[in-house]
Design a protein around this nucleic acid. Structure first.
Lengths: 121, 121
DNA sequence: ACCTACTACGACAATCCGTAGTAGAAGGAG
DNA sequence: CTCCTTCTACTACGGATTGTCGTAGTAGGT
């Protein structure tokens, strides 16, 4: 139904806030009147996709994110690079435009990152 | 069926190569043994989504991209920014990593772009 | 008046996602 | 040992998206 998997994202956000979580805990954290089994299903599917890890704690599973938010963002960026592979320069341009528009001060941070990366070698 | 709309992308790539196209021409360009009506449908759906423009040429439609590839990339980048909105700095990092990994020389171009953008104001 | 090319519309299968119910196992309380 | 609560596993369903076509009807040229 949704264009982007909104509920999965909310669950992941919860896990990314740190630690391991039982279904019940995630359910409480996400709230929104959703059924317990809805959260259980989402967690299960996330596990099938390899997005989360889990281990048994007694009868129940304990879940944690399989990759950090940073890694997930990295994968997202990689996917985008693959999608536009014919035209990397437009991507640089578009990226700068977006950064500037979202948060102009980020341009400075970007430049600092860039410099430190160059100096590192 | 597919995660990313592969055929729509191929059709768009064709249109992005320039000019206006009849269904028949796109069909020939995409090839791959697909039926003529398959291409017609894809073009039609692309039109519904506003991704392409069309005007009648006699009985037939002539299609062209509604936005340039560059604009499409910009929209893509904007979508990604929205998705990660809580953590823009990780995005900067991940972006640099990807640029470096894809094409190290692009880092220099990025820096040049950054500088020219800053000097422009 | 007929053939051809083109569009409009409908259809179907696969997949994803949100959402949830049910059955059954497992463990603690008496 | 038996009952109640808690969890998981499995199944299901509806809506959306996409790939893929078929059919029917229309409009123009020969």
């Amino acid at each position: 139904m949704p264009k982007a998997p909104a509920l999965e994202r909310r669950v992941l956000d919860t896990l990314w806030s740190g630690g391991t979580w039982s279904v019940r805990q995630v359910h409480a954290a996400v709230g929104d009147g959703l059924a317990y089994t809805t959260i259980a299903t989402v967690l299960d599917r996330l596990h099938d996709k390899g997005a989360v890890r889990r281990h048994k704690r007694g009868v129940a599973w304990r879940y944690e994110a399989a990759r950090s938010r940073e890694q997930a963002i990295g994968a997202e960026v990689a996917r985008m690079f693959a999608r536009v592979d014919a035209d990397p320069d437009s991507l640089l341009l578009a990226f700068l435009d977006q950064v500037e528009q979202t948060d102009p001060s980020a341009l400075d941070r970007l430049e600092a990152l860039l410099r430190s990366r160059r100096d590192r070698e």
